[in-house]
Computed example of a mutant assay.
Amino acid sequence: MLQDSLTIRYYQRLTDAMVELWRRGNRYEDIRQYMDGYIACLHHTGALEVYKIHRLEEEVFRFLRDPSNFEIAYPQTQTQTETDFYY
């Protein structure tokens, strides 16, 4: 579990971007490459300590492997009947 606030912020940004890529029709491999690039940038910029980046990578990879994170949730529409109206 991530505990550092900056690491959590990077996790949220990365996973949100991954879901958006999925919604736009990108394949799993494209999302994986995006994730790898993001992690590589964190290494090169020194934005986080190395052990935090490794922990972030583990958590993001776990997120990527879970298919429920990429399901499209359709809102259920409800229809009103005449009995729903109050006169």
Rank of each mutant, 00 (worst) to 15 (best):
H44P: 00
R65S: 11
R23C: 04
Q12R: 09
L48N: 00
R55T: 08
R32H: 05
Q80M: 14
H54S: 12
E20N: 12
C41H: 11
V60G: 02
H54C: 06
M35F: 07
E49W: 11
M35A: 15
F63M: 11
A73W: 04
E59K: 08
R55I: 02
Y74V: 15
P67E: 07
Q12K: 10
A47V: 06
R23P: 02
L6S: 09
R9M: 08
T79P: 02
L2Q: 03
R24A: 06
L14P: 04
T7V: 00
E82F: 11
T7P: 02
N69G: 05
E59H: 04
D4M: 06
H43I: 04
I39G: 01
T81C: 09
F63K: 04
H43Q: 13
R65Y: 01
E57P: 01
I53W: 04
S68N: 14
Y51E: 08
Q3F: 07
C41A: 15
I72L: 10
N69A: 04
A73I: 15
Q80H: 10
D84Y: 01
L2C: 05
R32E: 12
Q78T: 14
H54A: 11
G37N: 15
G37Q: 06
G37E: 03
L42F: 00
L48K: 04
D4P: 09
M35E: 12
I8D: 00
I8M: 08
I53K: 05
C41V: 14
L48Y: 01
V60Q: 03
L56R: 03
Q80F: 07
R23S: 11
K52T: 02
Y74M: 10
A40E: 09
D66K: 08
M35R: 14
Y34W: 06
L21M: 15
Y74N: 09
E49N: 08
T15N: 05
Y34F: 15
D36C: 05
F63V: 00
M35W: 05
P67A: 05
K52F: 11
E82I: 12
W22Y: 06
I53V: 14
A47R: 07
F85D: 03
E71N: 12
F85G: 07
R65N: 15
R32L: 10
M35N: 10
N26E: 10
V60A: 01
A40K: 06
L48Q: 02
L2M: 03
D4K: 12
P75Y: 04
P75K: 15
D4L: 07
Y28R: 15
E59S: 05
Q76S: 12
Y51K: 11
R65P: 03
G46W: 01
D16T: 13
L48R: 07
T77G: 07
E58L: 12
Y74W: 01
Y86N: 13
M1I: 14
Y86R: 15
F85L: 13
D36L: 09
E58V: 14
E59Q: 07
E57L: 00
T77K: 14
R24N: 14
L56P: 02
D4F: 03
L14R: 04
F61C: 09
Y86E: 10
R62I: 13
L48H: 00
L6C: 04
L56E: 06
F70P: 03
S68E: 13
H43E: 08
Y10M: 05
L21H: 13
E29P: 02
I53F: 11
